[in-house]
């Protein structure tokens, strides 16, 4: 599905480059469920953002579904990830001014999907996540776990092939966390490739394999 070759990322701090990612080589196949672990500040989120095309690498090659991402222009790249990638954040990042329903609907709007079709898709996912009763509430009226469910529903609404999750259970209690992990497991079974960042060994265990990051390098 995707392959990183010699990916590095650095920022210029005080005139000299500080490396955040150094020479990352990584290959992830269709249907995998990968967990990225590592101490705080080791570059996990940065790596996930590069994979999700929200950030550029400073150096290296990135191929995603047979396309050389590092050569694509902004518009094409956004087209690519709009179709194939869903993102889940630790802080949920829902739009406060929109209801649950409208939040979930937003990605479909940006893909120019017809209104009737959108209705059906949102209804479907609300049903699947059992949050139909909450569809007219605003994010601030929900608990953390519920908000994260909405966040995941929004990430999945456009039926992505790849789900990226940055500490999705970081702000949740353990029971809520478990529910989310079970959901991920089920999704993976249905064919969605998942890459998650996590601090918890237990959550990492849900995945098919683990990548350890330390100071911007992959630990073998």
């Amino acid at each position: 599905m995707l392959e990183l070759k010699h990916i590095s990322k650095w920022y210029n701090v005080g005139g000299k480059p500080t490396f955040i990612l150094k020479d990352i080589n990584l290959k992830i196949n269709d249907g995998e469920f990968v967990s990225i672990m590592g101490p705080s500040g080791s570059g996990k989120s940065t790596l996930l953002h590069i994979i999700g095309m929200l950030d550029d690498a400073s150096e290296g090659e990135y191929n995603f579904m047979d396309q050389a991402v590092h050569t694509l222009r902004e518009k094409q790249r956004s087209q690519l990830y709009k179709q194939h990638i869903g993102f889940v954040f630790q802080a949920y990042h829902l739009i406060d001014e929109l209801t649950v329903y409208e939040n979930i609907e937003t990605p479909l709007i940006y893909q120019n999907i017809k209104s009737s079709e959108r209705k059906a898709m949102v209804a479907d996912i609300l049903d699947r996540f059992q949050i139909v009763g909450k569809k007219d509430l605003f994010p601030t009226q929900l608990s953390g776990g519920q908000q994260q469910l909405v966040g995941i529903a929004r990430a999945l609404i456009a039926k992505p092939r790849l789900l990226l999750a940055d500490e999705p259970t970081g702000n949740l209690n353990s029971r809520q966390g478990e529910e989310i992990m079970d959901l991920f497991k089920q999704l993976n079974k249905d064919g969605v490739t998942i890459i998650q960042v996590t601090h918890s060994e237990k959550n990492a265990g849900y995945g098919s394999h683990i990548i350890n990051l330390l100071d911007g390098r992959v630990e073998q």
């Binding site: 518009k75 990830y81 709009k82 993102f87 829902l94 937003t106 990605p107 940006y110 929004r154």
Partner: peptide, 8 residues
């Protein structure tokens, strides 16, 4: 958020 979910 809009950008992340696909707004250009």
């Amino acid at each position: 958020v809009r950008k992340v979910v696909g707004a250009v």
